[in-house]
Design a binder for these strands. Sequence first.
DNA 1: TATTTTAGTGTAATCGATTACAAATATTGC
DNA 2: GCAATATTTGTAATCGATTACACTAAAATA
Lengths: 350, 350
Amino acid sequence: MHDSNIFLLITMKDKVTIYDISKKLNVSAATVSRALNNNPKISLSTRELVLKTAKEMNYKQNRLAQALKSGKSNNVGVIVPYINRSFFSSVIRGIEEELTPHGYHVIICQTHENYENEIEQINTLINTQIDGIFMSVSKTTLNTDHIEKALAEGTPLVFFDRKKEVPGVSSVIIDDFKAGYMATQQLIEQGCKRIAHLSGDLNLEIYKNRHDGYIKALEDNNLEVEPDFIIKTNSKIESGASAIEELWKLKKKPDAIFSASDYTALGAIQELKKMGLKIPKDVCVTGFSNEPFTKYMELPISTVDQTPLTMGKIAAQVFLEQMNENKKVSIEKKVVLTPELIVRGSSIRN
Amino acid sequence: MHDSNIFLLITMKDKVTIYDISKKLNVSAATVSRALNNNPKISLSTRELVLKTAKEMNYKQNRLAQALKSGKSNNVGVIVPYINRSFFSSVIRGIEEELTPHGYHVIICQTHENYENEIEQINTLINTQIDGIFMSVSKTTLNTDHIEKALAEGTPLVFFDRKKEVPGVSSVIIDDFKAGYMATQQLIEQGCKRIAHLSGDLNLEIYKNRHDGYIKALEDNNLEVEPDFIIKTNSKIESGASAIEELWKLKKKPDAIFSASDYTALGAIQELKKMGLKIPKDVCVTGFSNEPFTKYMELPISTVDQTPLTMGKIAAQVFLEQMNENKKVSIEKKVVLTPELIVRGSSIRN
DNA sequence: TATTTTAGTGTAATCGATTACAAATATTGC
DNA sequence: GCAATATTTGTAATCGATTACACTAAAATA
C-alpha cells in the first residue's frame, strides 16, 4: 500500500417514505401507494400530483418493505465454487443478463469446493428470502440433504453444469458424453489410434460422462480400450505434465491426448514439447472448457466449448418459467445443451 | 437444446416465524426474539427451550423483516462493466471473501460500459436498501450526478480501479503511473531505445496515468518522446495488430511496445511474428493486466499485475471501516496499491 | 326527486422481527 | 413477613409498503 489520505465530509438526508408524501399532500398513505403503483382506482389528478411530488421529494421505493409484504424479494442466489473462473463467471453473466430485465438481482456465493460452505451459503440465502437458487455443486458434495431441505422450504432451485439427482430440481447441463465422444472421434479422424484420456474425478457426473463418451467413441471405431491410458488428473497444469510422464513410461505410447480439462491439456503439451515431441504431428491434444488461453496460444488448443453464457440464460429462463407456475407444484425440467467442439491447431494433422 | 423432461412434484410447507414458536410455547413473540438473539435478560431455561424448539420446527430467521426494522440489509452492491472479465471477477471474489464473514451478501450488476445502465443500476441498488456500493465506472461515464445523488441518500460508495473525483468517496486503485513507469523502465533496461505505447482512451484516468508513467520513464532516461509512437487502441486483439501496421509504416520503427492492455499486446505480437520479426530479439513487448493467457503462451508475455484479489479485499475493508464510523460523517480514504511488474519472455533479451 | 352505481379515498390490518416500556414474578434484606 | 430490588416476561409500537374493506361524494338511473 503506497498512500492513503483522510478527508471529512458531512452528508445524509433522511429517506423519504410514502408517509412523508402523504403528509405533504394531506392524503392517506394508501392513496400515495396506489398512485405510485398505477392503481386504476385513483383519479388522474391525484395520481399526477403524487408522482410529481414523489419526484420532487426524491422518493425511492423501499424494496425491502415491499418484499416483506409480498413475500417476494426479487433476489436470486447463485452458488458456485469460485466466481472468478472463466466458466462460472460467464454463466453468472448469462443469469444476470436474463434476470435483470425482470427486476431480479443476483446474489453470488462461493463454496471454494467445500461442502460445509455450500450448506452455509444455502441457509443464509434462504434467510435472505431469495426467490430462487442457482447452483453448481461443489466437488466435495456427496449428500443432498441440504438441498432437499431448501426445496422443502419452497425455494426453487436450478442446477447448472454440476448437478445431483434430486427430485423436483431442474437442471441445465451440457451433454458431456457427447462432448467426450465428439472430441475423441475427431482425434480418431486425424488418424490417431492410441488415444489417452486425462480424466477428472470419475465420481463427478460430468467427468464420468466425458470418460464414457471417450470409451464409446473408441469402441465404435474398433479401437482397443487401454486402461493404462486413462489417468486421473486434477485440473492443474502440473497434473497434466505428470500424467504425460506416467504415460511415456508405458511400452506402447499414446499418439493423442483427450483431456477433460484445458489446464491439464496445457500441462501435457508443455511436457510433450519438453520431451521433444511435435504437436500435432507426433501427438494430437484436445482439452475441455474453452478457457480463454486455449485460443490465444501460438499453437491454439482444440477444446470443447460449454456455452456458459447460454447455460446461464437458459437456467434463468427455466427459473422464470417455474415462477409463473402454480406455487404449490414444482416442475422438474432437465435441459441438456449440445457442446461445441472447437478444433484448433493442436489436433489438426492435415 | 437436445432433450427436455417434465416431472411433477408437490412440495412446500409454510415458513416458520417467531409467532409460530411463541404459540407453541405459550410465550410472547418478544420472548422468542430475545431468546434467539441471546438477549441477557432472558432466563436460561426459556432460552434453551426456545432454541431447541426453533431448531425442531426448522425456524429460519427472516432477514428481510430484520433488515426493514434495523434499516440495515447486510447486502452490498458491486457495479462493474462486465462480470466475466478476469480482472473484475477477481475483484468481486476478493470483496465477497472479505465481506461474507461479516454477514454481508454481494449483489452484482453489469453496466456493459454504458452510462445509462450505470445510473439504473445505482438506483435499483438504492431501492434494494443495500448498505454500500462498490463500483468501477463505465468508460462512457463522464458526469457524476448519479453518484453524488447516491451519496446524498447516505449510501457509502467505494470506487475501485476506475474512479471519478467525487468528494466523500473512497477509492482503491493501483498506481498506474508507476506501473507505466516500471514497465517502460524494464524495456529500457533491455536496451530498447524506441519504445512505442499502445494506449487506451486517455480520457480515462487509468490510461492517462499509464501513459504519463511511460513518458516520464523515457524522459528520465533521456530518450526522445516520439508522438507518432503513441497509438490509441481499444483493448481488442485486432486493434493491437492494426497499431503495429501503422507503426511499421513509419520511417523510424520501434524496438519495443508497451501496451496498456494484454489483448492489444497479443495482437501486436501476432502481427509482428507475421511480419517475420522475432520477439524479444527484434522487438520487446509488455502488456497490462496479467490476463491468464499471458502466462500460458509458449512465449509468455510480460505484463503488469493489478492484484485484483487484494484490491477487492482492501475495498471491502475500507467499506467495513466506514460502517463502523459515525453515520453522519463520511470519511474519504484513498488507497493506492502498488502494481507488480511481471517480467516474462516477451521482454527479456539476455 | 329518490335511489342505485361508480369513482375515489381513507382506515386499519398485515408481512416478521425488534425493542422501549410496563407488568408480573422471584429474590433479597431487614 | 413485608418492602425493596432484581429478574423475567408481556404489550404494543415500529420499520415502509400494500390492500381488503368501509365509506363518502358525485354521477347515473328510474
